[in-house]
């Protein structure tokens, strides 16, 4: 029992690796601050394209969205990071990750927005158009705000997923939280840094999960 605690809950080890872990946390925060807006905004683009009145655009968008939802994000990151240089495109690591996340997260967020748009009754847009508002004014002021409100729990849940996915940046050597924890583990020959990282993730994500659950309850 003591051996188990010494391997996983070694406070002494946790304390020693804390600076490394905090540096990783800071890097993860930067990743989230960059990638989440990219996903949320990209999702709006994906939603607009996949609901386009031009059939060819709509089909192409739906095809791309399906593809990137089914494509493993880890492989996607490696492709963009290691593949683009072969095409003569040299990008900073963060830009590679941003592209991969843009493709993946936009697809997921786009589908959530699309469900949200569908949940707004047609009478809402009709009322707005009957007052002389243009199609885009109607979308921005009437349809979209209600769509977002209706799918807020799903948007939050997907945000949690995205935050967890940022750990994939570790495979292209970005020293984010999990990467730092794993490095600390190999330096200390002890697994406690991983538990510490898990606790940090839990402390950040659990309130979001709870919030999504409560909103879902209230909207039903």
């Amino acid at each position: 029992m003591n051996a188990l605690a010494g391997e996983f809950l070694n406070l002494d080890v946790m304390w020693r690796v804390m600076p490394m872990i905090l540096a990783g946390l800071a890097r993860s925060a930067v990743l989230c601050a960059v990638l989440l807006p990219i996903g949320l905004a990209g999702g709006i683009g994906a939603m607009l394209l996949s609901t386009s009145r031009v059939r060819a655009v709509r089909w192409a968008a739906i095809g791309a969205i399906d593809f990137f939802r089914a494509f493993p994000p880890l492989v996607l990151i490696v492709f963009v990071y290691a593949g683009l240089p072969f095409l003569g495109v040299e990008l900073p690591t963060l830009a590679s990750i941003a592209i991969a996340f843009f493709l993946n997260a936009s697809s997921y967020f786009g589908e959530i927005y699309r469900a949200g748009i569908r949940s707004v009754p047609a009478g809402q847009a009709e009322a707005a158009r009957s007052t002389g508002m243009t199609a885009s004014q109607t979308f921005l002021s009437v349809t979209f705000p209600q769509a977002v409100r209706n799918v807020l729990p799903e948007l939050i849940s997907n945000t949690v997923e995205l935050i967890k996915l940022t750990t994939l940046a570790s495979i292209v050597s970005v020293p984010e939280l999990l990467h730092s924890a794993d490095l600390a583990r190999s330096l200390t020959y002890n697994s406690s840094p991983l538990i510490l990282a898990a606790l940090i993730y839990f402390a950040i994500l659990w309130p979001l999960v709870r919030l999504a659950g409560r909103l879902e309850h209230r909207l039903r």
Partner: peptide, 28 residues
């Protein structure tokens, strides 16, 4: 859109904007 300003419409199901208060519904 300009022509519709002259033609008000009232709906059976009201079709008020649920995310705006009464004032917001009228001012939009």
């Amino acid at each position: 859109n300009r022509a519709r300003r002259q033609i008000g419409m009232v709906f059976q199901g009201f079709n008020l904007y649920p995310h705006l208060d009464a004032l917001g519904n009228v001012t939009l």
